[in-house]
Amino acid sequence: MSAHLRHTVLRTVSIAAAVGAAAVFGVAGPASADVKPGTYTSTTSSSGVILLQRDARVEGHDLVLIGRYPIHPTRTGGYVDLFPGHRVILISDGHGGYHGPAYLGGAVIGSITLTPHRR
C-alpha cells in the first residue's frame, strides 16, 4: 500500500469517526457529576484538522450532540461511548471546558474539545 493510499484511508477513517462523534455530541443531556451542565461548542479534530464543530449540551448525566449519550464520571471529568468501540475522554481544562482524546477500537484517532458558551 502506497504512502498516499495509507494517508487517504487514515483520513477517511478519521473523518468517519469525527462524524460519529458529532452525532453523539449534538446536544447534551444531563451530565455526570464531574462534567458541568450547560451549552458548549463541540470541536472534533484529527491530525490538527477540524473535522466537525457544532453546538452541544450537557444535561444531567448526558451529552447531547446528534444523539443523547451517557457521561460516565471520572476524577478529571468523564468519558462518553458514542458507539461500540468509539470513546471520547472529557478532561476538565480548569476554565469550564473539557478536552481529550477520541479512540476507535483502542487507537487514538483524534480529539474532542467542549468549549463553554459564555452568557
Rank of each mutant, 00 (worst) to 15 (best):
M1Q: 00
A3D: 10
H4I: 13
H4T: 15
H4P: 10
L5Q: 15
L5P: 05
L5Y: 15
R6S: 14
V9T: 06
L10A: 15
T12V: 05
V13T: 09
V13H: 06
S14M: 10
S14Q: 15
S14C: 13
A16M: 11
A17R: 10
V19H: 00
V19D: 01
A21Q: 09
A21W: 07
A21E: 06
A23M: 03
A23E: 08
V24S: 12
G26I: 01
G26S: 15
A28T: 13
G29H: 01
A31H: 00
S32L: 07
S32M: 02
A33Q: 07
V35C: 02
K36N: 08
P37W: 08
G38T: 06
G38C: 03
G38F: 03
G38M: 08
T39A: 12
T41W: 06
S42G: 11
T43L: 04
T44G: 10
T44W: 15
S45W: 01
S45N: 03
S47R: 12
G48Q: 03
G48C: 04
V49R: 13
L51H: 12
L51I: 13
R54A: 13
R54L: 13
R54N: 08
R54S: 13
A56E: 09
A56R: 00
A56I: 02
R57A: 14
V58Q: 05
D62N: 14
L63M: 14
V64L: 11
L65T: 04
L65I: 06
L65A: 10
L65F: 03
I66Q: 09
I66T: 04
R68Q: 13
R68E: 11
Y69V: 08
H72L: 12
P73H: 07
R75V: 09
T76W: 03
G77C: 02
G78F: 05
V80H: 03
D81T: 15
F83S: 13
F83R: 11
P84F: 09
P84L: 08
G85A: 00
G85M: 02
H86F: 13
H86I: 15
H86M: 14
V88M: 15
I89F: 06
I89A: 03
I91L: 10
G94L: 02
G94M: 02
G94T: 07
H95N: 10
H95C: 02
G97C: 05
G100D: 06
L104V: 11
L104I: 04
G105Y: 07
V108W: 03
I109P: 00
I109M: 10
G110I: 03
G110W: 01
S111H: 05
S111P: 00
L114E: 00
T115Y: 01
T115K: 12
H117T: 09
